[in-house]
Design a protein around this nucleic acid. Structure first.
Lengths: 255, 255
DNA sequence: AACAACTGTGTAAGCCGTCTACTATTTCTC
DNA sequence: GAGAAATAGTAGACGGCTTACACAGTTGTT
């Protein structure tokens, strides 16, 4: 039995909501006033979980590990968070952070800025890519989307097309960051430890051999290309794809 | 100690490879010939795991459940598969299946066909979206990519740009399918069970209220748009985004 | 001031998941 | 046929999520 009760009457039925959604929007009561004061807080739990995720990935943000680092037993956390899933939702929302301020005049420049900032956020918090995506927007998540949609709305597109374009850019930032994580740039590879370097090299050699012996030469050729030898981020896959998407949107806007 | 040994000398060091990669390409020996014949096979295990994933999602493709359905103990599976991760890799590769045959003449039409087929595959096997993405290509995976790259290569783009474009389309199919899964069309919603319908409705009502009370009206407006009331797939977000991406690529090809 | 209601934490335990010994049994090779 | 090798079963360690229960501390009410 959790202490969570809703005092103010909310029109929607909170029971049918996915775990964590109501909590993320702060729609749950923190509990009554009788009884001992909580020794900790949801914010503290999320902060510790973020630390763990930063250090060892999303799998390390487990209830036992968070509890151990705080100094309580595992199930004491259930006084603050109703389930693991809720913790993850709150964790992810916090990791999104606030969207960047976007310039007013040029929608294209603003959209590009938005995309690059999101891409960078995914790079700096790689485990955010491992959080399963749902459509249920959380506050920070929604603020990002709202910023982009506001900018794209200035093109005169219909609202639904605006949303589609926003999804396109969100998707690209996410996928690009995932790709970057898995295929590190030469600079990143140099910073990596020997084991990781060996693993990357082993995969490349192995895959090239397999692809060619299976007559998949087009892929093999593309993978051998100097893209993987280039250090400059401006020429990488993310920027290339971003330019194509923005070109496509621009062509649509001009009809 | 597994029975897996490599007899033919492979230049790459298989030890450094991520789990499942060598197995997916069939580079591991099936074991010696002494001893009892295996009562089962990797193919059978993957088929059963696929059944389970189709029925209850990727989480249901666990070793205990697969073993129970086959009629063996859990760890007997370790005679066929070296780890859970390897099973998932093999499962995912099998789910990709063979790429469609693509027409020769029009690269744009071929790329669109490729994207739609991939999108449909993700729709029919939603759990494939839950398999964490790595760059390590597996045979079917690579065959899909090879087919698309071959087509895109006819535009005369540099190999690295070809690969980038392919990633763009792959990303879009994946993200679009994920979006479709989370925001079902009205037709799909009608087919859903009452609980699911109630959940979807609850989320929409709740989110709309929260977005507006947080002054995130741009998102709220876009979400209320008749897009969600339209049944026709050709007008949905996936097709819209696909057209924009292809437009962007076409503009680049024509320089 | 005393009691009752309520809340936070600890202990214990259940369930499920991955994975590693060890043992017994079957089958192939010599 | 005898020994070697591989397969499947038994048992168990370990970690994760979650619930039930008891205890202790705090608050509001009588």
């Amino acid at each position: 039995m959790t202490p969570r009760k809703s005092h103010d009457p909310v029109p929607a039925d909170l029971e049918a909501l996915p775990p964590g959604l109501a909590a993320a929007w702060g729609v749950v009561d923190t509990g009554g006033r009788r009884g001992p004061k909580p020794a900790h807080s949801v914010e503290k739990i999320i902060a510790v979980a973020t630390e763990l995720a930063d250090e060892e990935g999303i799998a390390a943000a487990s209830l036992p590990k968070v509890a151990a680092r705080i100094g309580v037993t595992t199930n004491a956390l259930y006084r603050y968070v109703s389930s693991k899933e809720e913790l993850i939702v709150l964790l992810a929302d916090r990791a999104w952070g606030d969207p960047p301020a976007l310039p007013d005049g040029d929608w294209r420049e603003a959209a590009a800025l938005w995309s690059r900032r999101l891409f960078e956020r995914f790079i700096s918090r790689p485990w955010l890519l491992d959080v399963p995506t749902t459509v249920s927007l959380t506050p920070h998540n929604a603020a990002w989307l709202n910023a982009l949609i506001t900018v794209l709305g200035s093109t005169g597109m219909a609202a639904q097309q605006t949303l589609n374009c926003a999804y396109l850019l969100d998707s690209h930032a996410r996928y690009g960051a995932n790709l970057r994580r898995n295929t590190p740039t030469p600079a990143a590879l140099r910073r990596a430890n020997p084991d990781q370097q060996r693993a990357v090299r082993a995969v490349r050699v192995f895959l090239d051999g397999q692809l060619r012996s299976h007559n998949l030469n087009a892929v093999a050729d593309a993978m051998e290309d100097p893209m993987f030898l280039s250090d400059e981020p401006p020429l990488d896959g993310f920027e290339f794809g971003l330019a194509r998407i923005l070109d496509g949107i621009e062509a649509y806007v001009r009809r």
